[in-house]
């Protein structure tokens, strides 16, 4: 099996998950497809000569950066739009962090929450981009804290903080969804 075949196999193995992550984060399938293709292209161009075991963290780092860039562009567009039309929307990315965890909720009550994938995706989409990245790499992809830190280009402590905040927000949001 040649290098390109190996890379093809790697990309074939991650493309669905990468697309899912990008789609959940952006809420736009077309944008997600562009992001995934761009991430694939960057990996092939810059890292195809690297050992195959280095590809996963590299690929997810590229993907995360591409998603972050997309959010920045959207934020810039939103700011321009707000400036033109006088919106007073607060752009605080970490607004979800301030939501309190509903008192008296037990983990058992959360069991059925995951069955509503649309609600879960909406809740993930409401996280800040960094929290999304930490959550998706740790929970969805199954990276360790160290692998997630390598993929995100930050310390393990930062990953733990971001992941903890993400879980806190998701639990609060999804529990509230169940209660209504």
């Amino acid at each position: 099996m040649g290098a390109s075949d190996t890379l093809d196999s790697f990309l074939a193995g991650v493309e669905r998950r990468a697309f899912g992550m990008a789609r959940v984060s952006t809420g736009d399938p077309d944008a997600a497809l562009d992001i995934v293709q761009d991430a694939m292209l960057r990996l092939v161009r810059s890292y195809r000569g690297r050992p195959a075991e280095e590809w996963p963290p590299l690929f997810y780092r590229i993907l995360g950066n591409a998603i972050t860039d997309w959010h920045r562009q959207q934020q810039q567009s939103g700011k321009i739009f707000d400036r033109w039309f006088g919106s007073n929307v607060d752009d605080n990315d970490d607004a979800m962090d301030s939501l309190p965890l509903p008192a008296g909720q037990q983990p058992e009550q959360l069991v059925d929450i995951g069955q509503n994938i649309a609600a879960a995706e909406a809740a993930i989409n409401a996280l800040s981009p960094r929290q999304q990245q930490a959550f998706m790499l740790r929970c969805w992809q199954g990276f360790t804290t160290a692998e997630t830190a390598a993929a995100m280009g930050c310390t393990e402590g930062t990953v733990k903080t971001l992941y903890s905040r993400a879980l806190h927000s998701l639990r609060a949001t999804l529990t509230a969804e169940t209660a209504t």
């Binding site: 669905r16 899912g20 959360l110 929450i113 879960a120 969805w140 879980l167």
Partner: peptide, 18 residues
Amino acid sequence: NDLETQLQEQLRSSEDHL
């Protein structure tokens, strides 16, 4: 964590429904 397990299963299964 139950929530993490549930979300992981659901998110991964969503990959098969494209």
